[in-house]
Write a protein that binds this DNA or RNA. Sequence first.
RNA 1: GGGCUCGUAGUCUAGCUCGGUUAUGACGUCGCCUUUACAUGGCGAAGAUCCGGUGUUCAAAUCACCGCGGGCCCA
Length: 773
Amino acid sequence: MEPKIAEKAWDPKLENAILKKWEEEKLYDFQLCDNNYTIDTPPPYPSGRPWHIGAASHYAQIDMIARTARMSGKNVYFPIGIDRNGLPVELYTEKKHGIRMRETERGKFLELCKNALDDLEAEMIQIMKSLGLSGDFKNYYRTDSEDYRKFTQETFIDLWKKGAIYLATRPNNYDWVSGTTIADAEIVYEEIPTKLVYMKFITKETKKQIIIASTRPELLCACKTVIVNPNDERYSDLIGKELIVPLTNNEVKITPHHSAKIEFGSGAVMVCSYGDQNDVALFRELQLVEVIAIGLDGRMTEVAGEYQGLKPKQARTKIIEDLENSNLVEKIEDISHRTPLSERSKTPIEIVPMEEYYLKQKDSLEKMKKLGEEIEFYPNMHKQILMNWLESISIDWPISRRRFYGTEIPIWHCNECSEPFVPESGKYYRPWKDKCPAEKCAKCGNTEFTGEERTFDTWMDSSVSPLFVTKFNRDEEFFKKTYPTAIRPQAKDIVRTWLYYTLLRCEKLTGEKPWSEAWIMGYGLDEKGMKMSKSKGNAIDPLPVIEKSGADTFRFWSASEINQGYDFRCSEQKIESTRKFLSKLWNVSRFLSSFPIIKSGQLSESDKWILSELNKLISVCKEGYSKYNFFIPSTAIREFTWNIFAAQYIEIAKARAYGIGFTDEERDGAIFTLHKVLSTILKLLAPITPFITEHLWQTLYSQDSIHKENLPDIENVDDMSEMTQLLSEFNSKVWNEKKQKELSLKDSIKIDVPETLSQFKKDLIAMHNLESN
RNA sequence: GGGCUCGUAGUCUAGCUCGGUUAUGACGUCGCCUUUACAUGGCGAAGAUCCGGUGUUCAAAUCACCGCGGGCCCA
């Protein structure tokens, strides 16, 4: 008989045609129903080339979630979005064009960013499509579109009206030469020679002298406490006592803190607002009241007393002189200090408190913990990342950024009295260029306003993704039927940011949790287990890998190699070798395609045995799918298909399927069972490898798509799994003996079928051409 | 520097909750075999101080403690 499948191997190039067909048939288009299953898809950020192979793997698995739900009878809503706000594209654009953001006209700079994003995005969409994502590409959204930004602004205006937003000062990295705050990503560190000054402090009560070393003596006026390591015996009796600060004569407490290093300087460290980032953390943690010692002009303020107006470096020289004259210096060491510099001006940055917008979150923490408890995490262990984070939040969320490429904060300020004006929602506002919609200030009646130039933290945009895709405030029926969404799939590294902020924002806006399940994936590492980065040169570009091996190979690798929630290593060689399994599946199908499809037959004991094994497989797969753990079905299916179905059953049933020495009914039993098993395998595998299963399904079994099928159900059959090992041992024994005796597999041999396998005797004799006994 | 988290052959993984088998299976490697749907295959072999140390126990991959290493987040 001629096999229906003629080609000798699965050709990944067929995937393109299948993709096209799915698109033509609108197979994955979403129509609102009642049993909607909404995925809060992470919108990927096009930050540069190449896209991360770990991310490609991540999206392949998110698609498996969608397909699993679809094959479980759900009406799947799988939105596709692109996240386009934020710092990375600004840095990319600066580098690409050799320009500086703040030295470029804002409108012009935004245009350049937009073009860069369009470019990077096109490639990303291309990869997502060729991976076989069954998403709603037709309606894909961008977080920098007018619609999305308008929506982000609406949610801000809403929260502003509810009183959830306020202004407060917080320390910022400040480059006084460029006159701007800078992001952490724009800081470079350099070893710079400086003086470590050992100053004499005095305890208030006992007048005992304590030596404190610092590279920033000019900040004595902003010193608020002195910390010592709790294990440092030199100071154990002084903890909690007051110290007199030299020159200023201020009084400060000695506080124990683990960040004080016993071996550095004298072991006692002065904490000032703000010498470095550690000071910032300590002020926050110890709830100290900050003093502004350095102003926006980069000079000492009035709290510095006689040093007011000097630059920090000049003030330092002067203070050291004065301290020495008053005999308050024990010694001075020349050291090399790792100093944070502004990447652009190469001057040391100062940390200066500035006014920023805050969203209240401390008052929601208990509520967040409760929601966190209610949400099912896959794997459960990663719920801990959220819970630990909720325990450690100590300040409200600063939501304003002094950047260009982001959603503008919709506020104008009165030029006369600074009263803020927040417009009505419903429009996309750009206060840096738009005229204030208000005629005059509500407070003082002045008619001149200045638009806010700042943008939102990007998490302000991305944290409303579940509300945007469910059309919150825009389509009530749609929202009601899709929110709360079913699942948030995302990476482990942004649980504290994206997952947490989404929980916070959605609860504040809707009073409900955004999803009932969260699926957390690990991180893609290189072959040696190191993080991939462009600078290290160990990054793997996913596109050529997918083009070469095919999406299904890539997807099966992802499923069978990645343990749920754990970090994983990416190796091209390993991805390529996964293809062998698809070849095996192809060949099994090609062989079976030479037999007709029949509805029933007389089942032999061997048929009943493989159907019982198949039943076990269905049960394992469905268990794995229900936990969105694709490692379980993929490895189980490979094991079953290769080692049980192909290696044992097909060999056992082959002679009977050919009908030689068997009745037609017996023959039909074999043919029926062969197809029953293969069609079940295809359905079980369809969420993981949608292309090859579709091709084989449509070639063999149906005109219609396999992706409209449901996952197979468990059937009520007797468990015969104890036979599996006996059968495979007996078959191996026969094959080995023939090999030893240099017989062909067709040759006859005299081996008795053991009593335990007597029920399979007829099949086994025919299979091995055993001399009848 | 701090917090969290993980650690079983080159790689992925079962076993760990509840201590007792020769530590499971697969990929890769090596050797042999044109053999029947499939050499994109078959058969076989080697490969693990279960991260290290200490403790508990008759007995530890498994329990406890202390380290070391990777990763992530924060600084």
